[in-house]
Amino acid sequence: MEVVDPQQLGMFTEGELMSVGMDTFIHRIDSTEVIYQPRRKRAKLIGKYLMGDLLGEGSYGKVKEVLDSETLCRRAVKILKKKKLRRIPNGEANVKKEIQLLRRLRHKNVIQLVDVLYNEEKQKMYMVMEYCVCGMQEMLDSVPEKRFPVCQAHGYFCQLIDGLEYLHSQGIVHKDIKPGNLLLTTGGTLKISDLGVAEALHPFAADDTCRTSQGSPAFQPPEIANGLDTFSGFKVDIWSAGVTLYNITTGLYPFEGDNIYKLFENIGKGSYAIPGDCGPPLSDLLKGMLEYEPAKRFSIRQIRQHSWFRKKHPPAEAPVPIPPSPDTKDRWRSMTVVPYLEDLHGADEDEDLFDIEDDIIYTQDFTVPGQVPEEEASHNGQRRGLPKAVCMNGTEAAQLSTKSRAEGRAPNPARKACSASSKIRRLSACKQQ
């Protein structure tokens, strides 16, 4: 084909351009004929944790799935940006308080904090938690009735009371019990989460009196709706648990309003109706937990002794299953770290194939690490110290990083047969305790 000078094309009309061969290198194709290559998922490591896909996002930050490269346990990490926390009232204080509380709590029905990582340079905090497959609110939203069968609701409620009793025994008032803060594992274990607005009572406090509340409006008791200066913290949790039980068994809320002012007005009056299909035992329990006067409201001991709580409820309806993943529609909620794991395991070791967030990740503290002497050669063979940054567990980050890069360049065919977990650990520049 004859090559045409581009400067001469402006002298031709459209018809003349076609005659000189423009149609031979300008093609129009339908979008259905285009085959897009999927974007390669680059592996990203935060300390010893391999990052997966997004699980959810809230006002405080994002939650992603991660894999512990040492234990191969599935975890969830809450990623918090200090810049964003400053824009939220009491944001930083709530996060630090939640970390302090979770560090000393150990119960099967309370979410466990596994690790805390802090990135000084990017001003990011990573709260590594045990993995929960789904939230209770997500399960309720997945069915038209917006409720659980009585047998399933009873099982979840009993676990909620177990976890709540443990928190109260530790002198902690949750203040925000609701389905949105109750998570579930694949085995059906309920976990109380989000202790950001919780309050730890003084060890020598005479009672459970509280003065502040930041919980969700629909789950607040009349004493808070009416603006009382002080109130019983434990009875606030009992009320919120009662509203939660009402919601998961009926699909409704005892109090509603077009806006928060109308909602608080209705809560302050204390008038509500219980659907007739709840039955006398459940209705009596709800009335005891939603008692207007805090002094007359049920205690956890009274809830445990109630006939509806103690009764064994046979399954009359099919239980609400864990819904498919909202993004991938995966009904099994498979591990989202698998594509990243395959990338590390299947590809040659190259620095361009993975990302390490930083050479140094500070753990379990908000301060910069200490310094240790770096050896410097002298005339008599002895070495003197220069400062060298280290990880919180004493690992020399720069030395590990250099060693990792040197190993990656060394030709050794046997290394390709290593397991995925050992490869992740070798790529991680800074081991965590």
Rank of each mutant, 00 (worst) to 15 (best):
Q170K: 03
R425P: 13
S421K: 12
E33I: 03
M127S: 04
T189W: 08
Q123S: 12
N90G: 15
R103P: 05
P373M: 14
E396F: 11
K287H: 10
E98I: 02
L55A: 01
L54S: 08
S422D: 14
M18V: 02
P387N: 15
G10C: 11
L55H: 12
P387F: 07
D348N: 03
L286R: 00
S428K: 02
D330V: 12
E165V: 02
Q170A: 05
L286Q: 01
P321M: 15
Y60M: 15
P315K: 14
G242T: 00
K41L: 09
T71M: 03
M136N: 00
F366P: 15
V143C: 09
P254W: 05
I192Y: 07
G270P: 11
Q399Y: 11
Q214P: 03
D53S: 13
L101W: 00
Q382F: 07
R310H: 12
P281N: 15
E291K: 09
G56I: 01
K41G: 09
D141L: 15
K416M: 15
H168I: 01
D141F: 13
K175L: 07
R103E: 15
E291S: 11
A76F: 00
S216F: 00
I260T: 10
M392I: 11
I361D: 13
H306I: 04
S31L: 06
A429T: 05
T32L: 08
I161L: 05
I356A: 12
M392F: 08
E375N: 12
W332L: 13
L386H: 05
G56C: 02
G385E: 11
P203R: 06
N119W: 14
V4W: 08
K84P: 13
I177L: 05
V150G: 03
K235P: 15
R147C: 09
R39A: 07
K262P: 14
T185W: 02
V20S: 12
M22P: 13
S334I: 05
E145D: 07
S232D: 07
G381S: 10
L341T: 09
R28S: 14
K96F: 04
F148I: 10
D162F: 07
R384A: 10
H306C: 05
P369V: 08
N181D: 00
T250S: 11
L167G: 01
G279A: 06
R384V: 09
V128P: 00
M22R: 15
G180Q: 15
H345C: 08
K41Q: 05
Q382P: 10
N109G: 02
S307G: 03
A225T: 15
P369T: 13
Y253C: 02
G187S: 15
G279H: 15
L54G: 09
G288H: 15
S421R: 12
M335P: 12
I248H: 00
Y292F: 06
D343S: 10
E138W: 08
Q214C: 05
S378T: 11
A206L: 06
C391E: 14
K124W: 01
D30W: 10
L67W: 03
R297V: 00
G10D: 11
G52S: 13
F231H: 04
A347V: 09
P254F: 02
L164P: 00
R383I: 14
P38N: 02
Y156Q: 01
G270Q: 08
I46H: 14
E145Y: 07
S401H: 12
Q37W: 01
K403R: 06
R40D: 15
R384M: 10
N393E: 12
T336P: 08
P221L: 01
G288R: 05
L285P: 00
K62R: 15
C278Y: 02
S419Y: 15
E199K: 08
K178G: 02
V143D: 12
P321H: 08
S193K: 01
E351R: 09
R415G: 13
W332Q: 13
Y126S: 03
P326C: 10
G21R: 08
K83A: 14
Y126W: 01
D352H: 09
P323G: 07
M136R: 00
Q382W: 06
C418Y: 14
Y362R: 11
E375P: 13
Q37L: 07
F354R: 13
E376I: 13
P314A: 07
D350C: 13
G135N: 15
V338T: 15
L201H: 08
G61P: 05
K82P: 15
L167W: 00
P369H: 03
L184S: 03
Y253L: 09
T209W: 09
Q302F: 07
E145I: 07
K81S: 05
L140V: 05
E65V: 03
L344E: 09
K423F: 06
P319C: 03
T186P: 13
G346Y: 14
K97P: 07
S334T: 08
Q302V: 08
P294G: 04
G394V: 09
N109L: 03
K108D: 01
H313M: 09
L102S: 02
R86D: 15
N226C: 09
A206S: 08
Y272N: 15
E256I: 06
N94V: 03
K82A: 11
T244L: 06
C73A: 15
R405D: 05
L160E: 01
G385N: 14
A153W: 00
R331N: 10
K62S: 11
P294D: 03
S213V: 06
W239K: 01
S325G: 05
P373T: 07
F366C: 07
P413V: 11
F219G: 03
E291N: 05
E351H: 02
P314F: 08
L182H: 00
L105A: 10
N181R: 00
E317D: 14
Y272M: 15
E376S: 14
Q399C: 09
D176Y: 00
Y118S: 06
K235A: 15
S283I: 05
A389Y: 07
L344A: 13
S19W: 11
A347P: 08
E375Y: 13
K64R: 11
G268A: 05
L160I: 08
V236C: 12
E33Y: 08
I322D: 08
I161T: 10
E256C: 02
E407K: 13
D207A: 09
G270I: 04
P275M: 02
P149R: 02
D176A: 00
A205Q: 10
K388F: 09
V143S: 12
D358E: 03
D359S: 07
L102V: 05
P326M: 12
E256G: 08
R425F: 07
G268R: 12
A410N: 10
P413T: 12
E199P: 04
C151Q: 13
E98L: 02
A153F: 01
D359M: 14
R147L: 02
I26M: 15
A398D: 08
K178E: 00
Q159R: 06
M335V: 11
Q371A: 14
N266T: 04
Q371E: 09
E121W: 01
L282D: 09
L85G: 01
G242K: 01
E199G: 06
R147S: 04
P149G: 05
Q112I: 13
M335G: 13
V66H: 11
I322M: 04
S325A: 06
P323W: 06
D258L: 02
I111F: 02
K44S: 11
S421D: 15
E376F: 10
K124G: 06
L182F: 06
A397S: 09
V114W: 04
V143T: 14
Q170H: 03
P321Y: 03
E342L: 09
E120T: 11
K83S: 15
Q7L: 09
F219S: 04
C134V: 03
P281F: 09
L190I: 06
P319V: 04
S401E: 09
G56W: 00
P339W: 15
A205I: 12
K312T: 12
Y253V: 14
H345M: 13
R426F: 10
Y362C: 10
V173Y: 06
K287A: 05
S240P: 00
R74P: 09
M125S: 04
Y246E: 01
L113Y: 15
L285W: 00
E92N: 11
N393V: 03
D141G: 08
Y118Q: 13
V110E: 00
L50W: 02
V133G: 07
G163H: 00
T250K: 01
V3P: 15
T209R: 09
A241P: 03
I99L: 04
E291D: 06
K431C: 14
M11S: 10
I300R: 00
N226L: 06
R426K: 12
L285V: 01
L195A: 08
L72T: 12
T367W: 11
L67H: 02
N94C: 07
T186W: 04
G56M: 06
T363F: 01
Q432R: 14
C278I: 02
M51R: 08
L55D: 10
D53H: 09
T32W: 13
K403H: 13
L72S: 03
V20I: 09
Y118I: 10
L183A: 03
H168S: 04
A410C: 10
K191L: 01
I361G: 05
S283D: 09
I322T: 05
M127L: 02
Q305M: 13
I35F: 05
A316Y: 11
V34R: 04
C391L: 13
K146V: 01
M51S: 04
N226G: 09
T230A: 04
T395N: 11
